[in-house]
Nucleic acid binder design. Structure first.
Length: 576
DNA sequence: CTGGGGAAGGGGCCC
DNA sequence: TGGGCCCCTTCCCCA
């Protein structure tokens, strides 16, 4: 007995869920655009993603290799098996698509692009993976401690500008009959089998990175969001040569080899399919585009230790900024892309705890607020200048203007136009200064107490020539001064696109995002506990080593944490 | 019940 | 951009 359309329907469902952000458990950041998707689907489509989604809920893609527009097509392809014709130009830019497909280890898509290019008589590099420019060593590929991918490759960036997003996603366009989507890979016989939200407390992503962090973990009933051994770095991209590998850390050398796909495995039988292109596996429809990559390449991870902690992580997450985030992420943001409720500049920091209380309401409203809500246009990730609006499933108020300026809410059809517009927002708009003094929230508490550490005038004059006009502080270099001066701004340029909280530094916002997403790259080898910061792990390790480097000079009490010594000292000095 | 200590989370800020 | 360190805060345990 066999349901003929089972796989097709399943994919359609998944695609619809992606459109609504339902059960999406991973965010892919491409430039300033955020795409939400399902780890399982990505993992079933690409060995590259498979290795990455094991560890991360937030994946940054190299913008030299894939632009938001192209990635959107890639994502559509993953979910539908079709490459949709673009709007401007009417045909997808197969060159950039090929670059992206190779980078992301999507051999079928790459093969399709090659066929298309071949047919069009356009040359494409027959080097490794057929990616233009890959003959050169990569500028550098490294995986940050947070396992955020920052692989960099040359080329492609000049091409991607020519590609504009297609108007509609597949399900609203081409006929269902065009789909050939059979059963997913063997390892994951049912795509939904891995998508379960068993840990509602873990940040944003559908119960966070819980079990669905990867095939094997789920099968083992493990929960990455709680504890796991130190991260295995994701497999490097498919295009790394010896030179590239040389730039990786030792641990990355030990990574499983990338899927041996690429050009060698690309059978190119017959002519190119008609547009929208779709994929059939070499063995016909039953060997569909999602099934090809599953198989021996999958790397089951070793068993993870589960040490019960008294404090449940869900509880710990509950103390974080917005415990309701997962709810928002599950239901609140349509179109499969992170909207944000990012407040426009000038607004006070988003009242996160209120949002928590009103989480339900927000999540229900976010579909509307994405375009017109009080929070203004969706906040962006990273640079926070704009957000690329993935569309196609629901009407969007901005129409064709997919790139939205956060400060003013204007929409633009292209990132170039938006960037040009963003330039018109002068720093004066952001740098709100009140005649000689800085108002607003005022300095942070610790900032007030930092006067003690302020350098002496003489020192400042000699060593720190760059003086802040708003306070007495001075710095060695102008960049640091600029960074410091942001602390005086009334506005905070970097909004969290999940809870809308505003930050003065991008790094702080990124770190904050980690807590939403449950990204805890630093694992204790002793107990498996994970941390968002290296420093925390270092601090934590003292629990195991028994080291107590902080000693009270009054009573001789020793502490593992300096902050505990400080609070202890307060006990000594407080009147009571 | 209360206060102190241990441990941890988050944000600010400088390098 | 990320690391490191600071501070504030919270939670839990225990005396």
């Amino acid at each position: 007995m066999e349901l003929p359309n089972h796989a097709k329907q399943l994919l359609l469902q998944l695609n619809q869920q992606r459109a609504k952000g339902f059960l999406c458990d991973v965010i892919i950041v491409v430039e300033n655009a955020l795409f939400r998707a399902h780890k399982n689907v990505l993992a079933a489509s690409s060995m590259y993603f498979k290795s990455l989604v094991l560890h991360d809920n937030l994946i940054h893609l190299d913008t030299d290799m894939v632009s938001p527009t192209v990635f959107r097509q890639v994502l559509d392809f993953i979910y539908t098996g079709k490459v949709l014709p673009g709007e401007q130009p009417a045909e997808p830019n197969f060159s950039t698509l090929l670059t992206a497909a190779s980078y992301l280890q999507l051999p079928e898509l790459a093969a399709l692009c090659r066929r298309k290019l071949k047919r069009a008589g356009k040359p494409f590099s027959s080097g490794r993976a057929g990616v233009p420019g890959v003959g050169r060593p990569a500028r550098g590929q490294r995986l940050s401690a947070a396992s955020v991918i920052q692989a960099r490759y040359p080329a492609a960036s000049e091409n991607r500008k020519a590609v504009h997003p297609p108007k509609e996603l597949p399900q609203s366009k081409g006929s269902d009959d065009e789909l050939f989507l059979g059963a997913p890979g063997q390892e994951n016989s049912h795509p939904l089998s891995r998508i379960s939200c068993k840990n509602g407390g873990d940040g944003a992503s559908c119960g966070g990175s819980s079990g669905n962090s990867g095939g094997s973990e789920q099968e083992l009933g493990l929960d990455l969001s709680k504890k796991s051994p130190p991260l295995q770095p994701p497999a490097p991209g498919p295009l790394l040569g010896p030179d590239d590998l040389g730039q990786l850390s030792d641990s990355q050398h030990g990574s499983p080899a990338p899927a041996s796909t690429n050009s060698a495995s690309y059978a190119e039988p017959g002519g190119p399919p008609e547009d929208p292109m779709e994929v059939e596996g070499p063995g016909g429809p039953e060997e569909n585009h999602l099934g090809l990559l599953e198989g021996p390449g999958g790397q089951p991870r070793k068993s993870l230790r589960h040490l019960a902690r008294k404090k449940e992580w869900s509880k710990a997450e509950g103390t974080s900024c917005c415990p309701g985030d997962e709810e928002e992420l599950e239901e609140g943001l349509p179109n499969g892309i992170l909207g944000a409720g990012g407040a426009p500049y000038g607004e006070p920091p988003y009242p996160c705890k209120e949002e928590m209380e009103n989480g339900k309401e927000l999540s229900e409203e976010s579909g509307q607020s994405e375009g017109e809500g009080a929070g203004g246009p969706a906040g962006a990730g990273g640079a926070a200048n704009y957000v690329y609006r993935q569309e196609g499933f629901e009407a969007v108020p901005y129409g064709d203007n997919l790139y939205v300026c956060i400060p003013c809410g204007k929409g633009f059809p292209s990132s170039e136009q938006l960037n040009a517009h963003v330039e018109t927002h002068t720093e004066e708009e952001l740098f709100v200064k009140e005649e000689g003094t800085y108002g607003g929230g005022g300095p942070a508490p610790e900032e007030e107490a930092e006067d003690l550490s302020a350098p002496s005038p003489a020192y400042a004059a000699e060593q720190r020539p760059f003086k802040c006009s708003g306070c007495e502080k001075s710095y060695k270099d102008p960049a640091t001064l600029r960074q410091h001066e942001k602390t005086h701004w009334l506005t905070r340029p970097f909004p969290c696109n999940i809870c809308g909280k505003m930050f003065t530094q991008r790094g702080t916002m990124t770190r904050h995002m980690r807590s939403h997403l449950g990204l805890k790259p630093f694992a204790c080898e002793e107990c498996g506990m994970r941390f968002t910061r290296q420093y925390r792990l270092t601090e934590h390790m003292r629990v195991h080593s028994g080291e107590k480097p902080y000693e009270c000079h009054l009573c001789g009490g020793k502490f593992t944490q300096q902050r505990n010594l400080i609070s202890h000292l307060r006990m000594h000095t407080s009147p009571s």
